[in-house]
């Protein structure tokens, strides 16, 4: 099978204006992915499906990922005047990456029996801009899985034939797989030595008298 660089070059040549980035994956699995731009996503998906050497006709897995706002620390070389002399100094800077939601598609080829090729799309933000083009017209198998992402992550897929909640009930308002979802506090937290569980247990029993201090048993 072709390398991702080759696929990227050919796809960008075939679709004018398309922009594809390669997201590296440094782990032992070494499954890097293609980050495709939202505007041309359906065209790129069609290209991947119909291109005779790729023929990625089988979209196996579609899923969402929630990335919260992150702060990464980097050291960059900055030119500075130190003691009257211009020098290159390593200076730590904090870069704030705004959060976004991601839809990940794993593609295989049943015709050529190769794969996986991973493609991903990112939303603008986690609020109003959580919209992506639907790839259900290209691969029918995304139909239920995109509905599931809409239900659990709250990404709206434009062009999806039937975008409704699938797992939770229709009246439900939250998106429970998001990392910042707070679930209803409707049961007793057993006191255990796990710190975060203990913290939640304390929160649950907050109105109790102070002398009944909660201790791990």
């Amino acid at each position: 099978m072709e390398s991702l660089e080759q696929i990227k070059a050919r796809a960008e040549a075939a679709i004018p204006g398309a922009k594809i980035d390669i997201v590296p994956n440094l782990g032992p699995a070494n499954q890097p992915s293609l980050l495709i731009d939202n505007e041309h996503a359906p065209a790129i998906a069609k290209f991947l499906r119909d291109d005779p050497t790729l023929r990625l006709d089988f979209c196996s897995n579609v899923t969402g990922v929630d990335w919260l706002d992150r702060v990464t620390k980097k050291t960059v070389k900055v030119k500075k005047v130190v003691e009257g002399e211009e020098k290159e100094v390593n200076e730590p800077i904090e870069e704030r990456i705004p959060g976004y939601l991601e839809a990940v598609y794993h593609l295989f080829s049943m015709a050529h029996k190769h794969g996986p090729i991973t493609i991903r799309m990112r939303t603008r933000d986690r609020g109003e801009g959580a919209r992506l083009p639907s790839l259900t017209p290209v691969w029918r198998s995304a139909e239920f899985q995109e509905r599931e992402i809409f239900d659990l992550y709250g990404i709206r897929f434009d062009g999806h034939p039937d975008l409704r909640r699938i797992l939770m009930w229709d009246e439900f308002e939250d998106h429970p797989m998001r990392k910042d979802y707070v679930q209803p506090d409707d049961f007793e937290w057993e006191p255990t030595p796990h710190d975060d569980v203990l913290a939640r247990a304390k929160q649950h029993y907050a109105p109790r008298p102070a002398e009944q201090e909660l201790r791990p048993s």
Binding site: N25, L26, G27, P28, A29, Q31, P116
Partner: peptide, 16 residues
């Protein structure tokens, strides 16, 4: 496990 991602699959009795 080290930072990264992986997709693994098998042929279960019901499918992939």
């Amino acid at each position: 496990p080290p930072v990264g991602e992986a997709y693994g699959r098998i042929e279960a009795p019901k499918g992939e």
